[in-house]
């Protein structure tokens, strides 16, 4: 009785557009300074990576036979490598690949983690046992090792397969968190209501449970971007990652590290860009967590 009165009283106000999930999210983000700084840096790096090669006077494969290992100059902005290739162009192409790998791998990881975690937490029982067991098994398998062993298979199959594999080895921790949240969410009234109305289980998970933990998923996807970039760097450093003619920041660092003292420009430019990239992504992830997670307001 009193409820309906209250509702009537507030009805006219409710008629003004209530900000939806996404618009309130955007508003929250714009208000967080760290997120904005991080985003601006990332957008800057993306612009640099894709526009840079167009501005460079040198081609990707082109060698300057007059300048092997020459320091940065007006001709070669980042100097040249040991085969006379223009470091600026190489670094920009590597930056493109690293960004792409990070974004795609994080997307795949989060999708796998959300599905596995939500299904395990929603159905519990046997499905949960089985899925969590697989998760534990994946946690025990050393990811770096498995990717390195699989490398002979990957060598010829391009970078997208590599990205999918990267994602297959990174989803476990997020899946465990999603499972925990699902267990508590599935007891909420709106989930019960949906179930009593006869909505199918799969639809409840996709429409009601997963959107309600979108903040966790977004934060985690951001953190996964930087983990993927870091893992890729390590793999490429040992030659188990992306294969030539493709280059990433990781493979450039591997090459530059061998001559870091004699020819510092082959090492420091790509390393610096990698650090800036990961730093910016972490900045966004950290700010997002504070903005989206009500429990962590105190942590700023």
């Amino acid at each position: 009785m009193s409820l309906s009165v209250e509702r009537e009283a507030t009805a006219p106000e409710a008629a003004t557009p209530i900000s939806g999930r996404w618009s309130s999210l955007v508003k929250e983000l714009l208000a967080t300074r760290r997120v904005m700084i991080g985003l601006v840096i990332i957008l800057g790096l993306i612009a640099m990576a894709w526009i840079g090669p167009l501005l460079s006077p040198w081609e990707f494969d082109e060698r300057d036979f007059g300048a092997f290992r020459s320091p940065p100059s007006a001709d070669h902005w980042f100097g040249t490598g040991s085969t006379g290739r223009d470091m600026f162009h190489l670094t920009m192409v590597g930056l493109q690949k690293s960004i792409l790998i990070g974004l795609c791998a994080a997307l795949f990881t989060t999708v796998i983690a959300a599905l596995v975690g939500a299904f395990a937490g929603y159905f519990l029982g046997l499905a949960d046992r089985g899925l969590m067991w697989v998760t534990d098994l994946f946690l025990v398998l050393p990811q770096f090792l498995i990717l390195a062993i699989l490398y002979p298979l990957l060598r010829d199959s391009g970078w997208l397969v590599f990205v999918v594999l990267l994602a297959c080895l990174m989803w476990m921790v997020t899946a465990k968190m999603v499972r925990g949240m699902t267990i508590s969410l599935k007891e909420r009234e709106y989930v019960l209501a949906a179930r009593y109305m006869g909505v199918s289980h799969a639809r409840i998970i996709l429409r009601h449970i997963l959107p309600n933990m979108s903040s966790l998923l977004i934060v985690d996807a951001t953190i996964n971007v930087s983990s993927a970039i870091i893992l890729e760097t390590a793999l490429s450093y040992f030659g188990f990652g992306i294969q030539p003619p493709d280059v990433t920041l990781g493979s450039l660092i591997a090459e530059g590290a061998r001559q870091a003292l004699a020819f510092p420009w082959t090492f420091w430019f790509c390393t610096g860009l990698l650090i800036v990239l990961v730093l910016a992504v972490n900045l966004v992830g950290d700010g997002l967590r504070d903005a989206l997670d009500p429990h962590s307001k105190s942590r700023t």
């Binding site: 760097t233 390590a234 090492f267 990698l274 650090i275 990961v278």
Partner: peptide
Amino acid sequence: AFFLLAVPAVVVAVILQVSAVW
């Protein structure tokens, strides 16, 4: 900590090695 988290372990090791040589 924030800065260190952004540097992959491989790069930390290489930078340490380079600075040791220097």
